[in-house]
Structure formats: C-alpha cells, structure tokens
Write a protein that binds this DNA or RNA. Structure first.
Length: 420
DNA sequence: TCTGGGGTCCTAGGACCC
DNA sequence: TCTGGGGTCCTAGGACCC
C-alpha cells in the first residue's frame, strides 16, 4: 500500500512561509531567467493565471488584485524540501523521494496500528506544524492510483487533504470522474490519441484491453492500465539509483554573440557539472556540449548543434571536463548567431577513476587530483566564499536574470528572518 | 526585447556481424 | 540475372515526469 504525499503549490508556498503578510494574496514564481510561470498560489490560480505562461505576457495583463512575483529560489526550496522529507522518514517505515516536493511512502504495515486515513492526517499535521507547508495525501494499492487519490485530495476540499482509495468501489467511482489526461504517464500526445479512440476518462482507460493498448501504444502505458486496475507494477524505490547523466544548462540573461562570452559560460557549466558528478561519487567518460539560438525568433535563422568527446579514462577532475567541453565548443561555434542557451552534459559513468590506462592515452593521470577537487568543493560548501577556475570570467554578463529573488531565509546567515 | 532546467525510459532504424 | 535470416549494439528522437 502506497501513500503519495506532495506539497501544495510547493515553490509558491515556500515563498509564503517567511512572509505572513502574503497570506491570502496571489503569488507566482517564475523560472530561471525570469522566463515563465512555474508555480502559483491558490489565489493566483483563481485569477485565471496559467502554469507555463511566459512572464513577459503575464506582465502585459492586469488583474483585479496585485500579484506578487518571485524568481526561483532553489536554495530555499531545497532546504524546505529536505525538512519535509525528514519528517516523513521519521514517521514512516520507508519512503521514496520522487521529486523536490513529492514522496511515495510505504504504508503497508500501518493498518495494524491505525487507519490509513488517520495516518495520512498525522503526516499532514506534523508537516504543517514543523514547516508551515500544507501537503495532500493519496493512499492506494498502486502508485498510479495513489497519484489519483492525491489529485482527489487536492481537488475536493471536503476530503480534508487526505484520500484513502483502498476500497475497490471507491477506486472505480473516482476513476469515472477523472479525465484521462490526469493519469500519471498520460501526457498531451497520448491523451489526444486516446480521445480519438473514445477513451476520455481514467475508468475507460482502466477498462481498455491490454492487448489494444500495447498494440497502439507501448508497454509503459499498458503497465499504467494494470496499475489503474489495482495491480501493482511499480515498487517503492527506496534507494535512488545512480544517475545516468548530468546536465548543466541555462538560458542566458542576454543573447550571446561573442565567442569569449560563450567560452566563459561553457567553462562555468562544465565546472558545475563536474561538481555535481563528484557529489554523486562518479567519474565520466562522455562529455557533450550543446548550444542553440532562440527557436521562437521568427526573423532569425535557427542554429542548434551539439558536439561530444569520449575520454579514454573516466574523470571527475574539473580541469579535464572543462578542457573537453571547451574543445567541443570550438567544433560547433559559429559566428553571426545570437545564442539563447547552451549546456554541458556528462554521461557514461564509472564508480571509480581506476580504468585501464590505455597505452596511447594522452590523458595522463593527474597527481593529487582528488585532493584538489575535494578542497575546492569543501571551500565552496563552507559558506565562506567561492572559488572557481578563471575560464568562466569574473563579470559573467551572460548570467541569468533573477530580478525578483527572495532571501535565502534558511541557508544564509545574513538572510535569517528576525522576529521582533 | 522577453518562452526553465533536469531527468528517465522506450522505440525505430542503421551499421555491422556471421 | 539472381542477393537470407537472425542477431547485437548504438543513436536519435519521441514521450513522459516534476
């Protein structure tokens, strides 16, 4: 039996935690570079503001009451997220952290002690008390049904934020009332195709023939169908599998036209990606760089390209990764374009750097590499300041815009809220 | 002027092998 | 003139998720 716990309007709610003056006010959070709206408070949704709307379009409109806007403050969200997850870890036998604001909880043994619904309310109350955040809880025999139970808990206020869908009759009653596009794993394209086949509710999908689904779609959707029928196909993944790839990419604060600026940005992304790689205790062989102009600009010719390098020996040394990335950049850079976005991707991971050293390997092992990288990472995590390689420059005029950033209330001493 | 960032999984098709 | 069948591996692209 699974419970899906997720925080209501997570980013927007985080912004409100330290701003009691915003209680009941509409607020939105915009993505990196202040690009588009990625989180809305309940009040903002009621004003008809839409998720994903570009910020510049939003600004052109007017609303009956003032809408407060925040740039994404990931340091704040990550910290509040870990507090929520810690509470769940303390209360439940096992949890799977599914995303920054969601966790699946194993509640199989709980019914011996208390009702599942009561347990849901307990988790909800504890999180509200300790963090000020409100969660929804959906309980069901499969992950896909737990997701739907959670949807119901959010959607119908009479539920008090907790829905237990153990009972088969209740499952079918809910499924009949939920449009198929709300099902986990059913996106825009699949919805369109299902609708064309006359399947428009979750119940119709649950009752569809496995054979037909497999024939017209694939095994993934077929698994979803079985989960909707109450047959568990997905387990709780308590231990996060090691990553297959690491990406660091950003849109620029302004369009880049000079090679030197792009070179700086790629250095910065490569260094950040290497830091993440070391955080995973991994080494990589595959390093790839991509860049692109704006796909939205009608009066410019689009250019996007990608180049990659495969090293002989796995590495997690920033210097190797920066060198491979800048070399790849040289192969795809073209003058005369206005670049909007670029990124660095690492893949082909190994758990140690001890690979066979190739006879012709020009990438000689570096002395003290691990010690130097450890030192850099620990300085950068100490809060006392940052050090970085010179290649990313000092000015960073290309850096993303975050003009409406809230303070790092919980992770920076200078930003600690003061109670008077 | 201005449209996020970071992931996973699956499939089709090509290259190559015997 | 006539050109099989079966397998693996890799990659690009599509679809989904938050």
């Amino acid at each position: 039996m699974f419970a899906l716990v997720d925080v209501n309007s997570f980013y927007a709610s985080c912004e409100k935690v330290f701003r009691p003056d915003l209680k009941g006010k509409p607020i939105v959070v915009v993505s990196n570079n202040d690009g588009c709206i990625i989180s809305l408070s309940r009040e903002a949704k009621q004003l008809g503001i839409k998720m994903g709307e570009p910020y510049f379009k939003f600004k052109e409109k007017s609303y009956p009451s003032r809408v407060y806007v925040f740039s994404s403050n990931y340091a704040l969200y990550a910290d509040l997220s870990s507090r929520v997850m810690q509470i769940l870890t303390d209360l439940a036998p096992a949890i799977e952290i599914y995303s920054i604001d969601e966790a699946f909880v194993n509640v199989s043994g709980v019914s011996h002690c208390m009702s599942l619904e009561a347990f849901g309310r307990q988790m909800r109350a504890q999180i509200l008390k300790n963090t000020g955040l409100t969660v929804g809880v959906g309980i069901a025999p499969t992950k896909t049904l737990a997701k739907l139970a959670n949807y119901a808990a959010k959607r119908w206020s009479g539920t008090g934020g907790v829905v237990d869908l153990s009972d088969r009759e209740r499952q079918r009653k809910l499924l009949a009332n939920v449009p198929v596009d709300e099902v986990w794993g059913v996106g825009r394209r699949i919805t369109k195709k299902l609708n064309a086949m006359g399947i428009s509710t979750a119940l119709a999908l649950a009752d569809a023939s496995s054979w037909v689904i497999c024939k017209h779609f694939n095994v993934v959707l077929e698994r979803t169908v079985r989960e909707l029928r109450g047959e568990p196909c997905l387990d709780l993944e308590e231990f996060t599998p090691t990553k297959q790839q690491i990406i660091c990419s950003r849109s620029f604060g302004h369009r880049i036209t000079q090679y030197e600026e792009m070179h700086q940005a790629i250095c910065a992304y490569a260094e950040r990606a290497a830091e993440k790689l070391r955080g995973e205790h991994q080494y990589c062989r595959f390093i790839s760089v991509f860049l692109r102009t704006s796909p939205h600009a009608d009066n410019e010719i689009y250019y996007g390209n990608q180049a990659s390098t495969i090293l002989m020996t796995p590495t997690n040394d920033s210097r190797d990764i920066i060198r491979a990335a800048t070399e790849a950049l040289g192969r795809i850079w073209l003058d005369g374009y206005r670049y909007m976005k670029a990124g660095v991707m690492l893949a082909d991971f190994f758990s140690t750097g001890v690979a066979q050293l190739n006879l012709f390997d020009d990438n000689r092992l570096r002395v003290n590499s691990a010690a130097l990288m450890d030192m850099i990472d620990s300085v950068n995590h100490s809060g006392k300041g940052k050090i970085w390689f010179a290649g990313q420059g000092i000015e960073k005029s290309w850096a993303m815009k975050r003009e409406m950033l809230s303070p790092a209330y919980t992770t920076r001493y200078a930003d600690l809220p003061v109670a008077r």
